[in-house]
C-alpha cells in the first residue's frame, strides 16, 4: 500500500483530453484536475450541464476509458479495466433482450450452486418489484421495468461499488420519481458505494449524501454539497429547496433556468441570501 486512506474511491488529479476534430486544432479538455474521495457506503451524485464530462469521469472510474493523466483508486488499487466488483449501470438499458428477466438477473451471479443461484436471482427480482416477471422477455416490459431489471442484475452480482450513468434519464417523470425512491430504499438496505451521474439537480438532492457540482467544459468540480437531510426526502423540504437553488446557482443558472451572468455566482460563494450558508457545508473540492 502506497497510501493509507479510508476512502473507498479516490480520484486524484484526473485530466481528460479528447483529440480534436481537425489536426490543426488543440485537443478538447473535458476534465480538468478532478479530485474526489468517496467513503465506503456513500452515495454521491455528480451533476453538471450536459457535455460537462460527468459521464466521462464515470467511464474512467468504471474502467471503460483511460484518463489522459491522474488515477482513480478503488480500495487502494488503481482501476485497470472493467471489474465485476464495480458494476456500471447504463442510461439506455443494456439488459440482454435475448434472455428472460431471470437469466438477465442471473447473468453476473457468481454462485455456482443452482439452488443458491436461484435464491439470489429471486431475491433481487423481488427487490425491484418484478416478482412474477421472471420468465418474461425484456421486449414485453416497459422502459421502467427494463431499468429495474438492469438494477437487479447489477445488485445480483454482489458488487461493492455501483456506477450509475443517468440510469433514469430516459424514463418518464412519474417512473423516474418512483425508481428514485425505490433506489433510496434499496441503497439503505444494501449500503453499496454509489457514484451516480445525473443532470437532474432535484434527483441529486433527493438521492445523495453529497453532490459533486461540475461546471461547463473544461470541467472542474465547482462545489461539493453535503445533503444532511434524513431519507426519504421530500423535495418541498426547505433545506432541499435551498440546496437545489444553490446547486443551480453554482452551475450558473437561476431557479427558472436563466443564466446568471454575475461574476462570483459560479464559484458557489455568492448564495444571495445569507441564511442559506448555514445549510451548506462545503467539503473539500
Amino acid at each position: 500500500m502506497t497510501r493509507s486512506t479510508a476512502a473507498k474511491i479516490a480520484v486524484r488529479g484526473i485530466w481528460m483530453t479528447f483529440p480534436p476534430m481537425e489536426r490543426t486544432q488543440p485537443g478538447i479538455i473535458v476534465l480538468e484536475d478532478i479530485n474526489l474521495e468517496v467513503a465506503d457506503g456513500e452515495l454521491i451524485c455528480i451533476v453538471g450541464p450536459s457535455g460537462c464530462g460527468k459521464s466521462t469521469l464515470l467511464n474512467i472510474a468504471g474502467g471503460f476509458l483511460e484518463a489522459t493523466s491522474g488515477e482513480i483508486r478503488i480500495d487502494g488499487l488503481p482501476v485497470a479495466g472493467p471489474d465485476p466488483r464495480h458494476i456500471f449501470i447504463f442510461q439506455e438499458s443494456s439488459v440482454f433482450p435475448w434472455l428472460t428477466v431471470e437469466d438477465n438477473v442471473g447473468f453476473g451471479v457468481k454462485r455456482s450452486d443452482p439452488a443458491e443461484r436461484k435464491r439470489v436471482v429471486d431475491h433481487y427480482i423481488e427487490m425491484v418489484g418484478l416478482t412474477g416477471f421472471g420468465k418474461a422477455f425484456p421486449r414485453e416490459l416497459s422502459g421502467g421495468m427494463k431499468q429495474r431489471v438492469e438494477i437487479a442484475r447489477a445488485f445480483a452480482a454482489e458488487p461493492d461499488v455501483l456506477f450509475m450513468d443517468e440510469p433514469f434519464g430516459a424514463l418518464d417523470y412519474l417512473t423516474r420519481m418512483k425508481l428514485r425512491s425505490e433506489l433510496t430504499q434499496i441503497w439503505q438496505r444494501e449500503r453499496k458505494t454509489v457514484l451516480f451521474v445525473t443532470h437532474d439537480v432535484e434527483e441529486a438532492v433527493q438521492l445523495s449524501d453529497r453532490v459533486v457540482v461540475m461546471g461547463k467544459r473544461p470541467s472542474r468540480i465547482r462545489d461539493l454539497v453535503t445533503v444532511d437531510v434524513p431519507r426519504p426526502r421530500d423535495l418541498d423540504n426547505p433545506v432541499c429547496r435551498h440546496l437545489r437553488d444553490h446547486i443551480f446557482r453554482v452551475m450558473g443558472l437561476d431557479h427558472s433556468g436563466q443564466s446568471i451572468e454575475r461574476p462570483g455566482a459560479a464559484d458557489g460563494t455568492d448564495l444571495g441570501e445569507g441564511s442559506q450558508t448555514v445549510l451548506i457545508r462545503k467539503a473539500g473540492g
Binding site: F64, G81, D83, P84, H86, I87, F88, S94, F96, F107
Partner: peptide, 28 residues
C-alpha cells in the same frame, strides 16, 4: 449495441465465453 459488450465485460465475461453468451445471440 456497444452497451451489451460493455456490460458483459463488466461482469467479467471475456474471450470465447463473450462470443457464446453475448456476441452470437446479439447478432442472431
Amino acid at each position: 449495441q456497444i452497451n451489451y459488450i460493455r456490460a458483459a465485460r463488466n461482469f467479467g465475461i471475456t474471450g470465447l465465453e463473450l462470443f457464446r453468451k453475448v456476441v452470437f445471440p446479439a447478432a442472431l
